[in-house]
Structure formats: C-alpha cells, structure tokens
Design a protein around this nucleic acid. Structure first.
Lengths: 225, 225
DNA sequence: TCAAAAGTGTTAGATTTACACCCATGA
DNA sequence: TCATGGGTGTAAATCTAACACTTTTGA
C-alpha cells in the first residue's frame, strides 16, 4: 500500500463497552476480570482491538456480540480516551461505547462462560486503567439521553409495568419521583401503549403491562420523562 | 519495547479541529484548503496526527496552537470518527474537537499565512472526508453546552454589550430571542457584571459593557440562558 | 383480615412567553 | 430633527411540584 502518512506513527486503537442492564430495580453494568497482560486479573470493562478492516463502530458491535451473542443493540459512542500512559502495556487509544440491553436477553450461561458479572452502578470497584472514568462519562451521557429519547425500553422487556418504568428512571437518575406525576407524563405519550395484559409477579393485585409502539413514536416523536 | 498486543494492528490516529468564532453577528468556523495528498486542495478542517508521546487531547491543543498561536483555549472532544474508508489515503481514525476563540485574539496575518478562512456556519462548503459530519456534531454539542455553561464568553471580548451576547445566542441557536426576556435572565446571573464603561461603536447612544466574573461564577454557578 | 403494590386529580407556585414605548445621540 | 440601537415592566398562560386515599388480592 502506498504510504501517504509514512512520517507519522500508528497507534493501537481499542474499544471498551459499558453495558447497562436493569435488574432488581438497580442499574447495573457488566464487568469482568481482565484475561490479558498487562493488568491480568483486574476488574475491567469488556473490550477489544479495532481491526484494519472494520470501522470503530463495527468493532464495538462485534465486541459486544462476542460477549453477549446479541446483535442490533443500542450503542452510542462515549468518546476517545487518549492519555499516553493510560495502558500500562503500550500506547493504546480507546474509544468507549455504552450499550443498553435487556438483562433477560443475555443468556446467563454465556455470561458465566465469559466470566463477567452484573454490578450495581453505585458499587463499581476500581477498574483497569481509566475505565472508571469511562463509566462515569457513559452514565452521564446515558442519563441525559434517557429523558429526551425513548431508549429506556431497551433496558426493559417488551412488556413492562409502569412501576418498572418508574423504577428504571429512579435508578438512572438516582432519585425517587412522584408516582402520580410520572404516570401523568406517561399518559401524554400515546406511543406508550397500555395492553390488556396483567403482570401478577410484582403484586397480588396485578399491574397492567405496557409496550412501546415504535411506529406511533415515529409519527409523533414527543418524548419527555 | 515489549509488544503485549503484537497480534493486533496499529492505525493512524489524527485530530481535527472545529474552531468556532463570532464575527459580524455570525457564528463562523475556520477552514482551509488541504495542503496534503490525498485530497490536496479540498476544503477541510485543520488537523494533524497524534504522536506517540502526546495524549490525544494534547495533540488537539498542539494543532490548534500551530494554527492560531493560542494556548489555554476552550476545547472539547466531539468524538472519534472511525469508518474504514473515511480517509482515501490510508486507515485513519480521527478524533474531532471543537474550540471556542475570540476572533480578535487570532492575528489576521497568521490566519492568512496558514491559508484558512472564517466561514459562516450556515454556508460551509463540501469538506474533505467526513468533516461536514464533524461540523454538524460539533455544532450540536456546542449548542447544548452554551445554554447550560458559561462558555459563550470564550467567543466574545472580555468586555461586551448585552446586544452582542444576545446576537451570539441567536447565531448559535439559529433563532431570535426576545430582548427583554433575555436581559431579565442575564440580570439574574450576578457573575455577568455591568461595568461603568460604554461602548459607542455599536450605536450613537452607546451601550454598557459587561464582563464575566469567573470567581463570582464559581461561588454561585447557576447558569441558564 | 391485612399487608403490599396499583391506581387515580387537584391546586398552589414557579416559570415562561408575549408584548410596546421612551431614551440618548450623532449625523 | 430624525434614524438608530439601548434600555425597561407587566400580565396571561403554561408547566411543575406537592400531596392522600381507595382498590385488589394472595397469604
């Protein structure tokens, strides 16, 4: 290949994934013990290197697929992390992405095989390199996004109760909200559809199940929670 | 050097700068004709490659300094752009940054030497590679930021009139705002200080000059415009 | 029968928006 | 003297936040 830029230096480029899940009314992320030197055994985000024949976005999607077996997952870039010494091994620039998955879509057997765990967002241990900062940045970005775009449904089953949705918002924002005000706002968004189905797992009385109607949203995309 | 990651491929990493300025009540950015193959002669953002001994942030600051001679400029990362074919020469991952400068701080002689021009944000021509997308993303990020953080002052002289400040917001947001409501909000922010100085260049009557008091802001950082 | 979660409206206060005229000055 | 930009307050409408009780049902 002709080298236009021969006088400059090439650098390893990696991706790291902050994978959010919602379980037991808690916002969690997937972390595991690093299986590679340097830093073997330290808590770490799941990541991988970008290959020459794939875009950085594709590398992130591939990495997520390797770990979870899931495709078409909601992923957004957090940013590039480029300190000289951020990786103790070699110069590596890493691009962080956050992903939103429904915990039930992730086969627990597969999770154990990869040796990763769901950890409460408020109880993240010290992580490898600058991964803690990535988590902080990802959480801030996701939090902003979730109140203006209908991405919360990515963290929930197709059918969910309003209490589940509310608990999700409370977990993401770190503060409780008023039930009546919350439901009032939901009622104004016609694309959050009430079904005739009842969920009895969360209470004796049972709660109506709702679903997100994507088509209806596209026709009138007014989201605010 | 020990190679921990020998099985992976290294990639060129570059930075590109979206440099915002405010002039003649217009939001503008600096662009120039590319001086390098491939793409020589095309309109382009100003950029450069990341060296092995500098962080990506430092590379962006250095690149900006090369062009403008300015240090300690407000810069924020827009994101990493990593399509395989984004650069027609070789595989290059680029990290975009936006910068805010006061146009008057940039020596016009130096600007001409580098062959770059201030172009109205609404009249950007087709740019090299994916630079147009970078500009769009940078503008969106800056626009969000400017209404919640006191960064507008980076685009203005130390002393400015309220009309200047208002025109800046109008240029950034692309819509006019009500003069009385705007001034009402400014008045609530004590860190935007009225001085006894009068600017007579903009009108016959003259307008009071204001300044941003950073210390006062830090004591009561409530910004909203 | 009672504990536990589901479901439901109203009101006061705060915030936002719309709107029009006088002032000071240099040309 | 007049054209130009500078400067000022009020009222209606909208949005937000606070708040408590009844229903259902399985254990």
């Amino acid at each position: 290949m002709t080298s236009y830029y021969f006088e400059y230096q090439k650098i390893f480029v990696s991706v790291d994934c902050i994978i959010f899940g919602f379980e037991e009314n808690k916002l969690k992320i997937l972390i595991g013990r690093r299986k590679m030197d340097p830093g073997r055994g330290e808590w770490s985000l799941y990541g991988g290197f970008v290959r020459n024949d794939e875009s950085v976005d594709d590398a992130a999607a591939r990495t997520l697929f390797e770990l979870t077996g899931l495709r078409n997952v909601y992923m957004r870039q957090v940013g590039a992390y480029g300190s000289v010494d951020r990786d103790p091994g070699e110069r590596v620039v890493s691009v962080a992405y956050y992903a939103l998955i429904n915990v039930k879509d992730y086969d627990d057997q597969l999770r154990r095989e990869h040796g990763v765990e769901w950890v409460n967002i408020n109880e993240i241990p010290q992580l490898y390199s600058d991964h803690n900062q990535m988590v902080i940045d990802a959480r801030r970005m996701m939090r902003k996004k979730i109140s203006t775009e209908p991405i919360s449904f990515r963290l929930l089953p197709n059918l969910f109760t309003l209490t589940q949705l509310q608990r999700l918002y409370e977990a993401v924002n770190g503060e409780e909200v008023d039930k009546r005000n919350f439901r009032k706002r939901v009622k104004e968004m016609d694309f959050i559809e009430k079904t005739e189905l009842i969920d009895k797992t969360g209470s004796k009385r049972g709660a109506y199940l709702y679903r997100f109607n994507k088509k209806a949203y596209n026709e009138d995309p007014n989201f605010k929670l």
